[in-house]
């Protein structure tokens, strides 16, 4: 009963690859945006916050459609990237990673922003008086202290990317071996007669991967948290 077919393995591997790439690429942007939102006051700050959180409240189909007309082959950003850097999103797994990254971005930013806001800024002042430039303060004090929140944000981002469905299928469709993730494969299997057993196997796989990610993040966060209190 639990022998996964080659097609199912392809969908699983693809999902994991898409989720990892989406998280890795989103992370530096997420840290930068979270830092700006946590620490800076500027005109248009609430607009930036709103834009970042938009994928959380918009129907995923709308986000997917906006990605399609922006990053599709004839979209302004899509054409530019394809012509100048050879990066193509439409109907490719890279497009799925982009859609997943955009959809998961608010969760990533939110977790990291909260951990930046929780840091005692007086420690950063103290580091400054000890000769650390603002950038080195960020690297040696702010980032290590925010690490549990950054890890939590990455796991949320990974889990969201793994399960993303609506924006992905709208933007890059549901092509086996290229853009068909676990979610899309389950959806397809539930639409055909006799697909229940296969769908069930993928459901179990999705639960196992998500649980493993959660447990791993707990473990990392506890290790990072221990460094504040233990020897």
């Amino acid at each position: 009963m639990f022998d996964l077919t080659p097609d199912e393995w392809i969908a699983i591997r693809l999902s994991i690859r898409i989720a990892i790439v989406a998280t890795a690429v989103a992370l530096p942007f997420g840290i930068a945006v979270a830092w700006v939102l946590a620490r800076k006051d500027f005109w248009g700050k609430s607009l930036l916050g709103g834009l970042v959180h938009l994928p959380l409240v918009l129907p995923p189909v709308v986000t997917g459609y906006l990605l399609l007309i922006t990053f599709g082959r004839r979209g302004p950003a899509g054409a530019f990237l394809a012509d100048n850097f050879g990066i193509v999103f439409s109907f490719r797994w890279t497009g799925a990673a982009l859609a997943c990254g955009v959809m998961a971005f608010p969760l990533l930013v939110r977790a990291i922003r909260l951990s930046f806001e929780a840091i005692d800024r007086r420690l950063e002042d103290a580091a400054g008086t000890l000769g650390a430039s603002p950038f080195r303060v960020f690297l040696t004090i702010t980032m290590p202290l925010a690490l549990p929140g950054i890890i939590a944000g990455m796991v949320l981002c990974f889990a969201k990317a793994l399960g993303e469905f609506g924006a992905t299928i709208t933007f890059v469709s549901n092509i086996p071996g290229e853009t068909q993730t676990i979610s899309a494969a389950i959806y397809t299997l539930t639409q055909v007669p006799g697909g229940d057993a296969a769908a069930f196997r993928l459901v179990v796989v999705a639960i196992v991967i998500s649980l493993a990610a959660l447990i791993a993040s707990e473990w990392f966060a506890r290790r990072a948290g221990m460094r504040y209190h233990g020897d």
Binding site: D120, D125, L145, R227
Partner: peptide
């Protein structure tokens, strides 16, 4: 006053 040692 409060030391402000780096906890990590």
């Amino acid at each position: 006053q409060e030391g402000r040692l780096f906890p990590h």
